[in-house]
């Protein structure tokens, strides 16, 4: 039907990833606004049960491509299978997560199908029948509002955590296996093995309070100051990715899309700008505090409380007062 919305499901070990439910919630909203239907596409191997589970998440249809080769396929083949599926389903709008997996899949699909695509979006909505997205540009200090051409198919990669996971009432969903000729598709590489990083010595995901250091700390010698603050508050120290890239802290401390997802009671971001890949790992924290000298830093868009100032003044003060109380 014209205007139909399709979500491409992301899953791991037979379970849908959280972003899939967020996309379904968004997809439902848009499909309802356009009086269209919402489908979800699952690609993988041995995913019958997963498909049945997804049928109860408020979608109208589940499209399944279950093939042995998709279990360890490099993205090339997954994209190929997605492209063939989209040709058959012909949705007006396709939603993908802007996750490590979606960052690889979205451009591959959009390019092969020749559809207009917007990635790293913080929102997608239907306004007067047009699909409108918001996405950060220039380090995230600004958001561009982009409107897709009416009546042309579009693909949107939405940031994980940008929209809440609203559980949808189940509908009578149709589960349909798509008969694709996977064997004859080009494979373009093969996954030799999957690796799951061990939890590590410190599990920041278990902390109630996380004080995270960003590139604003300047250099590794300043990290004890952050750690002392975390300790005074009874929490643990986390960090943004550049600190791990520079070898200042081990990967187990990293919060974000390519690090850990944390949902502490309190998350204090010190000298962190708030890039979408960082937010993906902490936007679910109950209370977010930002300490940053740049009042336009994107982190203030998600923070509940903010202090605009020099972290070298604020953090020691916080440590001192926390110790006293």
């Amino acid at each position: 039907m014209a205007g139909d919305v399709l979500v491409i499901a992301e899953h791991w070990k037979g379970r849908p990833e959280a972003v899939t439910f967020q996309l379904i919630a968004k997809g439902r909203e848009i499909a309802d606004a356009r009086r269209a239907s919402l489908g979800v596409l699952v690609l993988g191997h041995d995913i019958g049960e997963l498909a049945a589970d997804l049928a109860g998440t408020g979608v109208d249809a589940v499209f399944v491509v279950d093939h042995r080769a998709l279990g360890n396929a490099a993205c090339g083949l997954l994209a190929e299978a997605a492209v063939a599926s989209l040709r058959e389903i012909a949705p007006a709008l396709t939603l993908v997560g802007f996750t490590l997996v979606g960052m690889e899949l979205a451009p591959a699909i959009a390019t092969r199908l020749g559809v207009a695509a917007m990635t790293n979006c913080v929102n997608v909505e239907c306004v007067d029948g047009e699909i409108v997205v918001a996405k950060p540009v220039y380090d995230g200090a600004l958001h561009a509002r982009v409107i897709f051409d009416r009546d042309a198919p579009a693909l949107v990669a939405l940031q994980a955590g940008a929209t809440p996971t609203l559980p949808q009432p189940a509908r009578a969903a149709l589960v349909r296996a798509l008969a694709l000729d996977i064997e004859s598709m080009p494979r373009r590489g093969e996954i030799v093995q999957f690796i799951e990083e061990p939890i590590g010595d410190v599990d920041i995901a278990k902390a109630d309070i996380i004080v995270s250091a960003g590139r604003g700390v300047g250099d590794a010698s300043k990290l004890p100051m952050i750690e002392a603050c975390a300790k005074a508050l009874g929490g643990l120290m986390g960090c943004s990715r550049p600190l791990v890239d520079q070898g200042w802290l081990p990967r187990e401390r990293q919060v974000g899309a390519s690090g850990k997802t944390v949902t502490p009671k309190i998350y204090i971001a010190c000298g962190i700008s708030g890039a979408s890949q960082h937010l993906a790992g902490m936007s679910g924290a109950k209370m977010i505090v930002a300490i940053n000298k740049d009042p336009n830093a994107p982190i203030f868009q998600v923070a509940h409380y903010g202090i605009v100032g020099d972290l070298f003044e604020i953090v020691p003060e916080l440590t001192a007062q926390a110790k006293k109380s």
């Binding site: 996750t99 093995q193 799951e196 690090g259 850990k260």
Partner: peptide, 9 residues
């Protein structure tokens, strides 16, 4: 692959 996972390809 995100979430502390990776793959050798």
């Amino acid at each position: 692959l995100g979430g502390g996972r990776s793959a050798d390809v």
